[in-house]
Design a protein around this nucleic acid. Structure first.
Length: 544
RNA sequence: UGGGCUAUGGCCAAGUGGUUAAGGCAUCGGACUUUGACUCCGAGAUCCCAAGUUCAAAUCUUGGUAGCCCAGCCA
């Protein structure tokens, strides 16, 4: 799938046509303090795809200007996720690579009288900043001499002051209606070891100062970010201009991508992991890229999903069905399908010879011959899915087995249910059916139509299997309740069933995902083939 | 009258004054079927509201309305 038409693509085209830029250079700038999730995929894919179609390139730059929150373990995880998605950054860089230059540019600002060292503490600064409707007041330190600022800033750098004792602020406009312009802090003191620069620095630039400079230094032409940075753009431009950067990057904002019922904030994901409600960031129920990968999502499915949702200046909430659909569409033609019965109900074909087993050649996929064929067994005793039988056909939409109704056992024969055997409690334990030899699959039989197709496994040859099925962590809308209560308690369920005989009994633990009521195998163990269980796709609808 | 952003079918989203207002997801109806999948047909919007400009407006103007973001020494 190609990237769809969107406003940023249009801007890039115009910039290229008007010779405002001669090459598109973008960057993906994650802060290494969390795992990437499906929401980040939009930024990654947009940056890389856009640069690619215009024959430009993309840098990966870790925005590591706040050592309090960041960690190199996240750096590796993020790199791995981006690589998994199939993207190769032109350069892998760190914001901290530019600390020397950023420092020099801060000094330059001081020398131009555009920055000053401020002694206000956090509470004071908040009070001085004013409110949304009222202008702020100027800091008492705002008019220090350049020499004094230079001396103080150097002392900050040299570790003379404690955390929070002083800051360096841009001198802009305390009365600006844009809060970001009310003398924003551009450097703060943090005495902590940085994952990249160790203890070399005890002052660190703020995002608003560092980011535009990083973009400018790298020659980024289109700096894409999310909508909430809209108000920061004027500061971004101010920094680039006042620092007299030879290259002028431009910031463009787009909306975030949300998915219905999906937890996507760093805070919640962190909470889930730390409270051990999940087994880690790569728990297959998580919406992280690594979790999705374990759940069986392919990179193509994620890419198609993101490209399919488009890009605009709206924070959109896309239906989770769209994600599932993009996965189904991708898997549909590239993955082998097999039969498994997760929740078995025994069926006896009363008119089929007792000790006979018939082996039927079956394609792994009707849509893709290259996947080859396998043999499945048919015999007197088979298992079908409990949910594929209802004693009384409830409505005309019920395309499964009922008493007196005929269905096709997939790849085999029509069977008709004649009798339902129940235990003393009235639970259905067994069905007595008859088959029609003339209806053998492939025979071209056309005289009657069955009431649907259901999958089965032959009982004597089937292999017992344990299925741990899971579904994504869904969250309901009541945000007041505790996290634990908001999660679906059935997100991880164990079943004991059967797989067809050809299949190794290795597709068990943690390898299946519900899609609605459906399920398919994942590449949790990437040495195994990806599999789909037949009839996953139909199970999207409910048939009550 | 703080500032900024946004508004196209249930959910995304094309559209940049002249089109029967693309497409995807979902839904509903139908065909097909050795997966109720896939595939194939078919159904659905006067584009937030109002007033203007124009031969012509989703697109321009004005005025409303609604939603989101901003008062971290986070990013």
């Amino acid at each position: 799938m190609e990237i769809e038409s969107n406003f940023i693509k249009t801007i890039m085209e115009d910039d290229l046509n008007n010779n405002k830029v001669d090459k598109i250079i973008t960057r993906f700038p994650p802060e290494p303090n969390a795992y990437l999730h499906i929401g980040h995929a939009r930024a990654i894919i947009t940056n890389f795809e856009l640069a690619k179609i215009f024959d430009g390139y993309t840098n990966l730059r870790f925005d590591d200007t706040n050592p309090v929150k960041e960690d190199s373990s996240f750096v590796e995880a993020i790199k791995k996720d981006i690589e998994w998605l199939g993207y190769n950054p032109k350069n892998v860089l760190f914001g901290s690579d530019y600390f020397d230059q950023t420092y020099d540019l801060a000094v330059k600002l001081i020398k131009k009288g555009l920055a000053y060292v401020c002694d206000l503490n956090q509470d004071e600064m908040r009070a001085y900043r004013g409110t949304l409707k009222e202008p702020g007041k100027e800091s008492p330190n705002r008019n220090r001499t350049i020499e004094e600022n230079l001396r103080l800033f150097e002392e900050m750098k040299n570790g003379k002051y404690k955390d929070g004792e002083k800051t360096l602020r841009a001198k802009i406009d305390m009365a600006s209606p844009n809060m970001n312009m009310r003398d924003p802090v551009i450097y703060r003191i943090i005495h902590i070891e940085h994952h990249n620069t160790g203890n070399k620095w005890c002052i660190y630039p703020m995002y608003d100062f560092a980011h535009p400079l990083q973009d400018a230094i790298e020659g980024v032409t289109h700096s894409l970010c999310s909508l909430e940075y809209d108000d920061h753009r004027v500061l971004y431009d101010w920094v680039v201009e006042k620092c007299e950067m030879p290259h002028i990057p431009h910031q463009y904002e787009f909306g975030r991508l949300n998915i219905t019922n999906t937890i996507m904030s760093k805070r919640y994901l962190k909470q889930l992991v730390e409270s051990k409600l999940v087994k880690g960031y790569d728990d297959p129920r998580m919406p992280t890229l690594t979790g999705l990968r374990r759940r069986g999502y392919t990179k193509e499915s994620i890419k198609n999903f993101v490209l399919g949702t488009g890009l605009s200046r709206i924070n959109s909430t896309v239906s989770s069905e769209m994600l599932e659909t993009s996965l189904r569409n991708d898997l549909n033609y590239k993955v082998k399908r097999v039969n498994a019965v997760i929740d078995p109900l025994k069926v006896i074909i009363t008119n089929y010879p007792d000790n006979k087993i018939e082996w039927i050649d079956v394609e792994y996929s009707r849509d893709n011959e290259d996947l080859g064929t396998r043999k499945i067994a048919f015999g007197r005793n088979v298992y079908i899915e409990k949910s594929d039988f209802l004693e009384v056909k409830p409505n005309k939409k019920w395309k499964r087995l009922s008493l007196g109704i005929e269905v096709r056992l997939m790849h085999a024969y029509f069977i008709k249910c004649n009798e339902v055997i129940k235990d003393n409690d009235g639970n259905i334990v067994e069905l007595l059916c008859t088959y029609d030899e003339a209806t053998k699959s492939g025979s071209g039989f056309k005289d009657r139509k069955p009431n649907g197709n259901i999958h089965f496994v032959e009982a004597s040859t089937a292999k017992k299997s344990r299925f741990n099925l899971f579904e994504p962590l869904m969250i309901d809308s009541d945000s007041k309740r505790d996290m634990k209560e908001r999660l679906n308690p059935n997100s991880w369920k164990e079943f004991k069933g059967f797989v067809e005989s050809d299949l190794e009994n290795t597709h068990s633990l943690e390898r299946f995902q519900f899609i609605r009521n459906g399920y398919f195998a994942t590449d949790y163990d990437s040495t195994k083939d990806l599999l789909i269980f037949n009839r996953i796709c139909e199970l999207r609808s409910s048939f009550k």
